[in-house]
Design a protein around this nucleic acid. Sequence first.
DNA 1: TATTAGCAGTCTCAGGGTAAGAGTGCTAAG
DNA 2: CTTAGCACTCTTACCCTGAGACTGCTAATA
Lengths: 345, 345
Amino acid sequence: MSLSERKENIIRAVIDSYVDSCQPVSSADIQANYLPALSTATIRNELAALEDMGYLVQPHTSAGRIPTSNAYKLYVEKLMPRRELSKGELEIIEKYFGEKISEIDDVLRSTAKVISEITNLAGVACFPNVGDAVIKTIRIVKITDTLALVIIVTDRGVLKDATVTVPSEITEEYFIKASSFITASFAGHKIEEVRNPETIIEEIKEEFKALFDTIIEVLRGYLEGDGNIVLEGSSNLLEQPEYSNVGKAKAMMEMLEAKEKLVPVLDKKGDVGLTINISNDENNGSPECAIVTANLSAHGVNIGKAGVIGPIRMDYSKIVSVLEYINRTIEELPVAKKFDEEKDQ
Amino acid sequence: MSLSERKENIIRAVIDSYVDSCQPVSSADIQANYLPALSTATIRNELAALEDMGYLVQPHTSAGRIPTSNAYKLYVEKLMPRRELSKGELEIIEKYFGEKISEIDDVLRSTAKVISEITNLAGVACFPNVGDAVIKTIRIVKITDTLALVIIVTDRGVLKDATVTVPSEITEEYFIKASSFITASFAGHKIEEVRNPETIIEEIKEEFKALFDTIIEVLRGYLEGDGNIVLEGSSNLLEQPEYSNVGKAKAMMEMLEAKEKLVPVLDKKGDVGLTINISNDENNGSPECAIVTANLSAHGVNIGKAGVIGPIRMDYSKIVSVLEYINRTIEELPVAKKFDEEKDQ
DNA sequence: TATTAGCAGTCTCAGGGTAAGAGTGCTAAG
DNA sequence: CTTAGCACTCTTACCCTGAGACTGCTAATA
């Protein structure tokens, strides 16, 4: 069932107005600011119809209308205008990505900051699920008498180093030999395969057995991590009227604090370019909010995701434009190139 | 000028009651719950005197009294009772430190979590200023054709690894030689000395010049970092009545978000065991709050700081006990031992 | 002289009543 | 099908008032 163009215009007007003011929108508002050709009575008739159809609600009889999440979904899919970024917004992006960025970490951090600054909401960014990374080489380097550093290089770069304790009698030469053996065993495997170590190698030479187990342990550690989520600007949310009530603010802050729990949300539908996740009212205790995420790639390689967390009443049009623009900017950043060796050589 | 014992008792009663309820304390409250031997009239006379002396204030004529920051300072210095931790509190500490902890990072994170959970306020923990760490060895390891990993071992452990881009024609052998040279140059120096590289070495062999500069650059990167602050439980603060007003809540959250700015506060008076920092009302725009920090050491080695951030109305007595107990617990954690090699050998 | 009972005085706060205002739905006319 | 007009509903801000909470002061007491 499809809506008449006039109904669509009215929904668009209600959302635009409500996103701007967070006040119920009246028929007079719509006429004055969006659709002067229609009379308020006509608009009222349409509003009543749209309410019956489940797109709008009234907080009480003598109030204007508020969009439902169905209306937002329709807006995002069909009604939303495409926007150019303003000069000020472009300047903010330039400010963060113009300066030198030497690590992927910095890209993600800058991305989250830019997003939060432009949208005045919370910006998030995260690495892709580390389990998918393919191991290229593993080296074990002795750094003190009883400590060794495990260096794991994947197709996405070097993982955060891990130190392991080793018996002091083990020599550097042993580690050089061991590194080749370990690399030979693990290379080409995805990190998540360590969940079933027997798939990686059938038979292990006795002399490397202990080390092999240690590496498995280290790799498992990565799978347990919080996926390296960067969160910026969460305090911005306190400015939003939907969180002026302390209870709701607290629920929101708690959700953001438990970063790990955001991972599944961010990872959802990992393949499509842009995901808009509007929480339904019947949500499982988590606060009412919406999350818009986009995949980030640089030189064609997926380097993670970035997005916005905020109230359902968000300027989706602006947010989508910002995310798209940022993605194009990152695509060409020199930093990402260094992990993209295959193509360079 | 020193106070009579009775006045001290009354201040203690006012603070204990106010910390508990966040309500102005009346003479009748004090009599009923703290000092039944005195009449309310006598207490009222004393309260009036203490108000003149600057220890108490009245929100309005017909309200009870609230302690000023002067009163809290006196309380912390002199009046505060020493407490034993409750069984529940000990269980929380056990829960976090009982499980395996393999890195110093984890110690700090657990510490911040424990603190926030027990006090129901925000817990912080941070590494000591990395500039003071003394370099022991530096190794450069080639990990791909054009990337090398710089491993810096200090007396405090291994620093977060940094990758640098290198020309592909440089061989592994070069790095082995270079590592010895670089280690010889830097060993024994504090990281902060790289601010003036000429103090580290007068003359550099031409063949290692570029690498030397790279290492300086990497080390400078560490000095710029945010000092690795871990913050947990900031959403707890939203439960505190002093932040029920959204404006104040936002100011607080913004302060916590700008972690870097917390560093100077945490580093202040770095040498003493315990610091209690009660912000004055005439503070520079930062929200009204108090910060209690303690130095953490393990096996006698300083591994960082930990503390609590909350409203001025805090249970200092409980907090001090918790911090002291945690410090004793960490002192004996096995994890810290591995960075403490000199003593083991 | 220090303490205390008693009481008048002050201020806050919750509750109720009211009037203004916002916005709708409905009816009837165009 | 659209629209002007109007009655109706509901919210909100405001004022007022009475109850309640504490104090400070005065005068009596040990």
